[in-house]
Design a protein around this nucleic acid. Structure first.
Lengths: 132, 132
DNA sequence: GTAAATACGAGTAAAAAAGTCGTATTTATT
DNA sequence: AATAAATACGACTTTTTTACTCGTATTTAC
């Protein structure tokens, strides 16, 4: 429990790779996948998603690839995680409230408090801290 | 991602229930399960595990049940989570190091740092904060 | 025109989580 | 002593989530 997904993991690996590869311009999904032993197609989707989110930029055609365009200092881990995986919550009831419990649940409020602590923590860390 | 399991959720619900039920002595698994709409057998296993960990005490026989024995102020959420679910880490490589990556992984160190932040946060919160 | 890259929906496989079953043990009550 | 109601627990099944793959379309340098 309390794990991040492979998708997020691969995204972070790719971002760090691209950052240290800044001078060389574009980086292809294939290059990153083979370098780190990651499934290429899965990585590609994650890169595509980050491109949609304007964190990186995609260039099509042969000799195409991706390059960093966002300032990673300005993106919190919370926002990054939520862009890739949706809202962050310790329990499902943290966002969708159609829990079967008739309202009997006795830990909703304290769990929300802990949840806020966690979101707050990830709000204060930036992508740059992971990729630098 | 970053979710707690149902097991932990049920454990917290049970603890809070027992705490507010302190005067009445014992509480049975059945009572909690039916009150909160939780699968009884699953809850029972979780209660048994907490009994092994000396957080609660089990009394067998008819009219048996469980009662709180630990001081919840003294148990951190980190310790509690790890007792129920094993070591806490954002990625599997956080504890078992037999990752296929030949050592190519470029985010191990920063992930460890974030991991420490998270463990630290849960170390500073106690069970009492959830059940009070 | 071809090849090498991105784009992406749909489907499959694997792993983890959640829940169930069966049976044993304990013990208060009758 | 028999019964019933509770805990104890290993093994199993089901469900859900995550991880991964496939097929096909599009773009574009050469």
């Amino acid at each position: 429990m309390l794990k991040i997904t492979r998708k997020v993991e691969y995204a972070l690996i790719a971002l760090r790779h691209m950052q240290s590869n800044k001078e060389n311009g574009l980086t292809s999904a294939k290059e990153i996948a083979s370098h780190y032993g990651i499934p290429q197609q899965l990585l590609a989707k994650t890169l595509q998603q980050m491109a949609r989110d304007d964190i990186i930029e995609a260039v099509q055609g042969p000799a195409g690839g991706y390059r960093l365009i966002a300032n990673l200092d300005l993106i919190s881990l919370k926002d990054f995680f939520e862009q890739l995986e949706g809202p962050m919550g310790l329990m499902d009831c943290s966002f969708d409230s159609d829990c079967i419990q008739i309202g009997a649940c006795n830990i909703r409020v304290p769990i929300q408090r802990i949840n806020n602590n966690m979101r707050n923590m990830f709000s204060q860390m930036t992508l740059q801290e992971v990729t630098q």
